[in-house]
Design a protein around this nucleic acid. Structure first.
Lengths: 336, 336
DNA sequence: TTGAAAGCGCTAACAA
DNA sequence: TTGTTAGCGCTTTCAA
């Protein structure tokens, strides 16, 4: 098995006590220069590394944070994770990434697991299936620091980081209207998610401000956020069976946007003259699509960084924090 | 701060000793049914969870495995990670994912960090910059179980899982030849990587078997695996300055393939009549590209699963393992 | 059937 | 300036 040398080993080898070695390693003022050198040299020689489990046990913290996202294959999340890591690693924290694949059951299991792993805090974007948050409230009430980003709950009082979803949706829908489209459908993830509500608001506002009516036949939800391709296909089925077909669709999510393109292709509608698409996506290959599509880009990296900064504030706070922030970052419209 | 109840708390509350509580919780035969029920009921009531740090300290293992990949945004790796998680989680292991972004420096830092975190084993795909593996050999020699997948070193004697890169490259190149192309360029990651060598072999073999000569002017490497878009652009620059331009390119990597498409687009060469592309990629949106491209798909999920199974064999082995396997999985050619 | 005590690696209060 | 000791949460040997 894999064993590293311990303070005890060093102490024995050097004829010192463990506390002297410990202090020497931590560069304590009480230890003489000679002893320090002796100890640090020997420690380097035997590749000494402090055992993090022992440290965690002692300090009652693990220097790790847990992340809960839908899936890392989603470019929004992989970019957010890069932002999270950039801050966390530089501050000496390990990051444990878990994926829900949009399932509430897996979200609960992941959160339980992370809590049991004694992470010092949690960074969460809710799964598409998550309507209630008792599994999180309980942990939060017991003092586990949590910061939400992207898909946030209303109930829990803590820091929350989002993009300006309403504005992004408004911009995308307005763009479709300016292109001359009047009948614009909207496909979204599960209706109860914060992002779905906000993006629906932006969509509605754009229609209304441009004198267009909101037709609820044109608004469709995918409770599994497009993880199941069939749910997207049946949504299209419904849209295609309407008396008056939509001319354009505003899609409210990364995976959904890509999924829509696949369905259009399957239906042989993937050409500039049929249905226009605009959607939220952080993918880096959208410009290679043909026909291409206008997209709403979220500052995922920045959101990840900001969420982590706020989480570390909570974790390292000397006194309980009672003032929480709700940060909203700007989106960018890429017209194609 | 976040505190859960401990065995000690339960023992005190129930007027028992900690050892009795411990045994009751582990369903030991020595404990009476009554006491067991008393303890387990109370434990459930107070949400008792064993402290994993204490457990790790005692057992000298952490029930966690470390993953080192280039980047999770790469579909090959995100699929491999899903495979890894599916096995690891079902066997009670936590997975810690780290990204090198193709940098050796970050690879070393990640590996050190994971070792210091006392993971029970490591799953690694080398970075594009990695030529020597002393940073891994040292840990391996000291007994840390390691399984390599995808980009594997020659030196270290352990389990290694790869796709049949030579075959995949052969198939893709042969396809381009069958399409009537004679001057086929090859763009690859850094030359010293196992995957680069194997894919070069497959490419060469396909040319030779079809009576075409191998022209080294047509073979280009990107030492940073395409993480820097400029290196890809300068490679194209060089190709475009040749007297006889290539008619097709076989690209040996996920990120590189996407990168090539971007460069072609930028050079206004992204149309069916200019340069044909075939490349390794596990992306799920290739069919939305226009013009599309033929791709070599690796069984990433299966590779992740297999690598994890072999790693857990090493970790949980009663006796030191001396027989190691080199598993090669089939690729699939998607003609578009 | 239950309890006392030691020990995993480390730090820190207290002693010397 | 260095050493002794207790304790973080848990399991396990030995004793009762």
């Amino acid at each position: 098995m894999f064993e590293s040398s311990t303070i005890k080993d060093i102490a024995r080898a050097l004829g010192l006590s463990t506390s002297t070695v410990s202090r020497a390693l931590r560069d304590s003022y009480e230890i003489s220069a000679g002893t320090k050198k002796l100890v640090t040299d020997y420690a380097r020689k035997v590749h000494y590394r402090p055992n993090p489990n022992a440290l965690s046990l002692k300090e009652r913290k693990s220097k790790s944070i847990g992340i809960v996202v839908s899936e890392v294959a989603n470019h929004y999340f992989s970019q957010a994770i890069n932002g999270i890591e950039s801050i966390a690693n530089s501050r000496g924290y390990t990051v444990i990434i878990t994926q829900t694949h949009e399932s509430l059951e897996r979200e609960i299991a992941n959160v339980q697991h992370l809590a049991a792993r004694s992470v010092d805090g949690l960074l969460i974007s809710l799964s598409a299936e998550t309507e209630t948050t008792s599994h999180l409230e309980e942990l939060h009430d017991r003092g586990l620091p949590i910061v939400f980003f992207d898909r946030i709950p209303e109930q829990i009082n803590t820091h929350k980081i989002t993009a300006d979803n309403a504005k992004g949706a408004f911009d995308a829908t307005t763009h479709l209207i300016r292109c001359g489209h009047k009948r614009i459908a909207h496909i979204s993830s599960s209706a109860h998610l914060s992002i779905s509500k906000e993006r629906l608001d932006g969509y509605t506002k754009a229609l209304t401000e441009n004198g267009l009516s909101v037709d609820h036949q044109y608004i469709k939800n995918c409770p599994h956020g497009g993880m199941i391709q069939e749910e997207l296909e049946s949504v299209f089925q419904e849209l295609m069976e309407l008396e008056v077909l939509p001319e354009a669709i505003f899609v409210a999510g990364d995976r959904l946007t890509i999924g829509c393109m696949h369905v259009l292709k399957k239906l042989n509608l993937l050409n500039p003259t049929s249905i226009a698409i605009a959607g939220f996506s952080n993918s880096d290959v959208l410009d290679l699509f043909n026909p291409s599509l206008t997209s709403v880009f979220q500052p995922a990296f920045d959101m990840g960084q900001l969420a982590t900064i706020k989480l570390l504030e909570l974790i390292e706070a000397k006194y309980p924090v009672t003032e929480f922030e709700r940060k909203v970052l700007n989106t960018q419209l890429f017209i194609r």
